[in-house]
Nucleic acid binder design. Structure first.
Length: 790
DNA sequence: GAGCACTGC
């Protein structure tokens, strides 16, 4: 490994780390920072007083980079070098270098805030600015004050603005390690096209007709555009004169494609992942037939882990879909935005390539070179495709480029080792790139709902903790933090002064969003924990679970629904429960999943989540339940009398989703989400929620998510009883965000007193049986009136 | 009566 650029900087690095508690290392692509930095510190004795931790934003990265380091150190994984990701801890007492996802480190920090077991913490890939990395940056800043003498923190990334991070850490030093890149020719077009699907089509055909062999990779924003382009490409290729150019193979690649293979869940262990990867030479992974060019039309699915062998040409329209949260309305939307400068093409580093070559040579892998976003290709291309439950589609926002041809077939053809610069066609002018593109993507922390994050920080009990003033590298907006406080208050995680409650503490221990953890705790009280565990686990995997949307031509077939339960019309949560229960009845049968068009990988994931949550809930359960029993008996009730059976579960959901309650309009089936800026929303058409004989939906529902597509929709909806909703309405009425955020004033105290007397009367009124509904209605109207005044 | 990029605990 002596040839790696970073090794030449060893003395400088060690010297700087020795003299400073925090160091920023900007390792350009190809520098080998993720693998070499911890090994350098290990060699220099930094692991003697503790473990060297290296965080990664993704599971695959943690696994693969650690495997490689273990190999370089010539040890078995799990010995001196190990990794820890959710569901899998491959470390032992011997472990000195530990790779872990940043989420895992956050959880460890929950139970051991000083992270005493670590002598060095390396936050790798910080430029990706994942929510978890950003929280860790803030925590490290505090931690370094407590543990000044015995902790070193390194922040490494490819393109992160070093000056900014350095200022954040009181002007800590910034080291820049150069990398070595493969040559790539970048071509900008002179004018931005109006229709980028058409422009991509034109460019792709152009390449196909004029350029020598080599696959083409085209990045589009979503499934719709991909399907469109695939159809058009097929048409166009057909119309080309026979024999005028090589054959074409057109392959779509996006997240809703069914997995190419389905795994036996009982075998899903770490090593199983390895076996899976061997089988992965399918679809885009298999080499093309001779004299054939592949067109891979992809979302940014493989940015970091999926790699494609043989790509020489990349077409980059410069757009991506991004999920955004609006704290005023509580709604998510997916918006097409321009990519940022740090997301455009950079070739894979040479050093990584050489390592990969050594690693893979002689094994039955397609060797792949990734040419990626600034994000890291270099560190990762090796593992590529391993992921626990089959292969995960990921985004290739960077680019995959293959300069060397290494598969056996191609080697036999005598072309091995030939190099050729890749070409990247950017469908935007260089001026647009220079002047218009943001330097970096808006960090996730400024685009997400922060309820979970705020609860996490509150539960750490940091001294002088004022959540509105927590020191983030980039602060989220006040609105977003206030929204989080409001949500936490509604689910009883914090009290009216903003202090964490005992419920809130338990919630923070569950790896779930607050509504779901609150649901579990309430279900425990209402004796329906087993059912709630199932629902919550199903929701955790929901997007990978449902049948993949069929192609346009298959649309009709989709209208005959598979033989799945309908939740008694009470809502999607109940349906999810019933689906899992049926699966359980079949003894977790794979065939059953396939018959019912459910993604096996998703169901297996649900099972793991459920097991993990059961173990955590065991701590809080009321004593009668053993977690084994929870795991094995998802279907507790023997009685099967329909609606009544799920009453407690729905009540628990209502209390858990107190921040996501919606009320139906009087005359139609539109709903108004309560507690947010008033907007009319619809139940998503995919819901199994049923209307009554008059065609009306339930008066109150809780929803899992508000998502704006063509219109605002509630996805995953559950009918709740008006009586359960009433206390929430009352709580909404006395909501005082100013107090929640820690502020107090005389005026607020007065308001507080008035509202709390009101509340007592209100509750008394609601609890008296006579005239209940009209009183609830009155409270509801007052609430709405008040809200419209605002 | 619609259609959703990707991670993570």
């Amino acid at each position: 490994m002596g040839d790696l650029p970073i090794v030449r900087f060893e003395e400088k690095i060690v010297e700087t780390v020795e003299q400073n508690p925090v160091v920023v290392v900007i390792g350009e692509t190809g520098s080998g920072k993720s693998t070499q930095l911890p090994q350098i510190l290990y060699r220099r004795g930094y692991a003697q007083s503790g473990i060297i931790a290296v965080t990664q934003p993704r599971r695959v990265a943690a696994v693969s980079v650690s495997r490689r380091v273990a190999q370089e150190q010539n040890v078995q994984i799990g010995e001196e070098v190990g990794y820890a990701i959710r569901f899998e801890d491959r470390t032992s007492e011997k472990t000195r270098i530990k790779y872990l996802t940043d989420g895992v480190l956050l959880r460890e920090s929950l139970f051991n805030p000083e992270l005493n077991q670590y002598s060095v913490i390396i936050l790798d890939e910080a430029h990706e600015r994942s929510l978890n990395t950003d929280i860790l940056l803030g925590l490290m800043k505090r931690l370094i004050k407590w543990r000044h003498s015995n902790l070193k923190v390194l922040i490494t990334s490819a393109t992160l603005d070093g000056g900014k991070v350095s200022r954040f850490f009181s002007d800590c030093p910034v080291l820049t390690v150069p990398g070595e890149l493969f040559p790539v020719e970048i071509v900008h077009i002179s004018e931005r096209p109006k229709n980028y699907v058409e422009a991509s089509l034109k460019k792709a055909i152009d390449i196909h007709v004029r350029e020598p062999e080599g696959d083409i990779l085209i990045f589009l924003t979503g499934q719709d555009d991909i399907e469109k382009l695939v159809l058009k490409l097929e048409e166009k290729v057909q119309s080309l004169e026979e024999g005028s150019c090589m054959d074409a193979l057109i392959l779509p690649l996006h997240g809703s494609l069914p997995p190419e293979m389905q795994a036996n869940p009982s075998e899903c262990t770490g090593d199983f992942i390895y076996k899976l990867s061997v089988l992965l030479k399918v679809r885009v992974f298999s080499p093309p037939p001779p004299n054939c060019r592949r067109f891979i039309v992809s979302t940014n699915i493989a940015e970091t882990s999926l790699t494609v062998d043989g790509v020489v040409y990349v077409i980059d329209p410069g757009y991506v879909k991004q999920r955004q949260y609006n704290p005023a309305t509580g709604m998510y939307s997916l918006e097409v935005v321009q990519i940022s400068k740090c997301k455009v093409a950079l070739p894979v580093g040479k050093s990584s390539f050489l390592r990969m070559k050594r690693y893979f040579w002689g094994k039955s892998f397609p060797l792949v070179l990734r040419w990626s976003s600034s994000s890291k290709v270099d560190d990762f291309a090796v593992n590529t495709i391993f992921t626990p439950y089959g292969f995960s589609h990921r985004t290739l926002f960077g680019y995959l480029i293959d300069y060397f041809v290494l598969s056996a077939g191609k080697a036999a053809a005598g072309r091995a080792g030939r190099t050729r610069p890749g070409k990247c066609y950017r469908l935007y002018p260089s001026m647009v790139y220079r002047d218009d593109f943001l330097d970096a993507t808006v960090p996730e922390i400024q685009r997400s709902s922060l309820a979970g994050t705020v609860l996490y920080l509150k539960s750490l009990d940091l001294a002088d903790m004022d959540i509105l003033k927590f020191d983030f590298l980039d602060s989220p907006s006040i609105e977003s933090l206030e929204d989080a406080l409001k949500q936490l208050y509604l689910v009883d995680a914090i009290d009216e002064n903003g202090s964490i409650t005992s419920i809130g503490r338990k919630m923070a221990e569950l790896p779930l969003e607050p509504s779901l953890s609150r649901t579990l705790l309430e279900a425990n009280e209402l004796d329906c924990l087993s059912q709630a565990l199932t629902v919550v686990s199903m929701l955790s995997a929901e997007t990978t679970l449902l049948p993949a949307p069929g192609k346009r031509s298959e649309k009709k077939r989709k209208h005959t629904p598979p033989d799945l339960p309908d939740g008694f019309g009470l809502g999607d949560h109940i349906q999810l429960l019933q689906i899992y229960e049926q699966w359980y009845q079949t003894d977790y049968s794979i065939d059953w999943c396939k018959e019912n068009n459910l993604q096996v990988r998703g169901m297996v994931f649900v099972r793991s989540v459920r097991k993990q949550l059961s173990q955590i809930m065991q701590k809080f359960s009321k004593g009668y339940s053993f977690w084994l029993w929870l795991i094995r008996c998802p279907n507790k009730q023997k009685r099967r009398d329909g609606q009544q059976e799920y009453r407690n579960l729905r009540k628990a959901l209502c209390i858990g989703y107190a921040n996501q309650l919606a009320e139906r309009m009087i005359r139609h089936n539109g709903y108004r989400p309560l507690g947010f800026k008033s907007e009319l929303v619809q139940v998503h058409p995919s819901s199994v929620l049923k209307s009554d004989e008059d065609g009306m939906l339930p008066n109150y529902v809780v929803y899992h998510e508000l998502i704006v597509t063509s219109r605002p929709f509630m996805r995953n909806v559950c009918a709740v009883d008006m009586r359960w909703a009433a206390p929430i309405l009352v709580k909404l009425e006395k909501l005082n965000v100013f107090k929640l955020s820690g502020g107090t004033s005389e005026r607020d105290k007065q308001i507080q007193e008035v509202t709390s007397t009101m509340e007592k009367k209100e509750i008394a009124a609601i609890q008296s049986p006579e005239d209940r509904d009209s009183r609830i209605q009155a409270a509801r109207e007052r609430f709405l009136a008040r809200k419209s005044q605002k």
